[in-house]
Simulated scan of single mutants.
Amino acid sequence: MEKEMATAVAALFAAFVALLVGLTTALIARRNAGLQAVINQQMKHAEFRQAWIDTLRQEMATLRALALTSTHSSLASGTGDGAVQSAAKARFDILASATTVRLMMDRKDQDYDRLVDLIEKIEAESFEGADTGEGPRDKDLHNFIEVCQDILKREWEVTKADMHRLPAEYARSEEAKRRRA
């Protein structure tokens, strides 16, 4: 009878240990799946952010190139209907590119006002230059490039920081956000 009792207790203990191991394994697998989901989300967010940065960089470069070439293309067109259409197209392209840059930017960015001021100067100088033969001033174009570099560098640093943030830190910050809401 004692032997049978000891065997039953041993079997019960083994079943209990197996249950604990199974539950622990399930909890670890659940946690790992959650961490993997957070990592995947961070990667996707970084991809979208990098695509946005690349598009913004391209649009900023396009705006500068259009501003530089607007005067030359208007003068090369000569006079007449073709010249008027060419000048109108150049103005439209500059305005479209400038508007795209503005729309892509966050108005709360520390360099937003400086960027918009430079864009407005470049627009005005490009449009006036089409009539006078003088384009945007080198100083304004240089300042535009510097502001763009500052913005793009800062955005890249944010992207890198997001990628290097540990998933546990991310999970804690998300939990804190939920509690505040």
Rank of each mutant, 00 (worst) to 15 (best):
I39A: 12
A124H: 13
A67P: 01
L103W: 08
I151G: 06
R91H: 05
A130F: 01
A87R: 08
Q41K: 10
A98I: 03
R49W: 01
A76N: 05
A29E: 09
N143Q: 10
G78F: 13
E120S: 12
A8D: 15
Q149K: 13
R137Y: 00
E146N: 13
K108S: 13
R165P: 01
D93W: 05
A168Q: 14
V84R: 15
L12W: 14
S86P: 02
L35R: 15
E125W: 00
E59W: 00
S77N: 07
K89V: 08
T132W: 03
R31G: 03
N32V: 00
I39N: 12
F127I: 06
G82K: 10
Q58T: 10
Y112P: 02
T69W: 02
T71Y: 02
F92D: 13
R49T: 01
A15C: 08
Q85R: 11
V158G: 00
A171T: 10
I53T: 03
I28R: 15
S173D: 14
L166F: 09
L75F: 13
A90D: 13
G34Q: 13
A83W: 01
R114I: 04
A96I: 04
N32W: 00
D113Q: 15
E174T: 08
K139S: 11
K153S: 12
K153L: 11
L75G: 15
Q149E: 12
K160R: 14
Q58A: 14
M60C: 06
S86G: 09
T100E: 14
M105K: 04
D138R: 15
H164M: 04
A161L: 01
M105P: 03
V38D: 06
K89L: 12
D54H: 10
A65S: 07
T79V: 07
A10Y: 11
F92P: 07
L103E: 11
G78V: 13
L66I: 04
Y112C: 02
W52F: 03
L27W: 15
R179A: 11
A6Y: 08
L141N: 12
Q36E: 10
E169N: 09
M5N: 14
A10N: 10
H142E: 11
A6C: 05
I151W: 09
D150V: 06
K153D: 12
V38L: 08
L19K: 00
M43D: 10
A88G: 07
G135P: 07
S74G: 07
I119Y: 04
R154V: 00
R154Y: 03
L19W: 06
R30G: 00
T99Q: 12
K177V: 02
S70C: 08
T100D: 12
Y170K: 13
T25C: 09
L35M: 11
G22R: 08
L20G: 00
T25F: 14
R57T: 09
V38A: 12
A33W: 03
K44V: 01
A46W: 00
F144G: 08
I53S: 01
H164D: 09
Q41L: 07
A76Q: 05
L95R: 15
A176N: 12
G22H: 07
R180A: 03
T99H: 09
A46F: 01
I145W: 06
M105N: 05
Q41V: 01
G78T: 08
T132P: 11
R154E: 05
F144V: 06
V116W: 03
D81A: 13
G82M: 05
R31K: 11
